[in-house]
C-alpha cells in the first residue's frame, strides 16, 4: 500500500511550516494562505520521511498520513 498525505484545510492555520519542510509536496494558496497539496503521494523513503516531519511540525494538526 502506498502512503497518502491528507490535508484538512479547516484546521490549517497557514503558518507554512509544511512548505518549509517539503516545498515539492506543499504550497499555500495565495488568497487565504491555506495549505495546497502539490502531490499527495510520497514515493521515495525520503519523501515519506519529509511528509512525516510535516505532519509532526504542523501547528494546526491539519496534516495526516494514510498508509
Amino acid at each position: 500500500m502506498s502512503t497518502r498525505i491528507i490535508a484538512n484545510r479547516d484546521r490549517c492555520v497557514g503558518a507554512g511550516q509544511c512548505v518549509l519542510v517539503d516545498p515539492d509536496a506543499f504550497d499555500q494558496d495565495d488568497s487565504d494562505g491555506l495549505v495546497v497539496l502539490i502531490h499527495s503521494e510520497p514515493h521515495s523513503d525520503d519523501e515519506v520521511a519529509r511528509a512525516r516531519e510535516a505532519v509532526n511540525v504542523c501547528p494546526g494538526r491539519a496534516l495526516s498520513l494514510a498508509e
Partner: peptide, 13 residues
C-alpha cells in the same frame, strides 16, 4: 481575521 491576513505572509509571497 487570521485567514484574511495570512495570504500576505505565505512562504512564496
Amino acid at each position: 481575521l487570521r485567514r484574511s491576513l495570512i495570504g500576505e505572509f505565505t512562504v512564496s509571497r
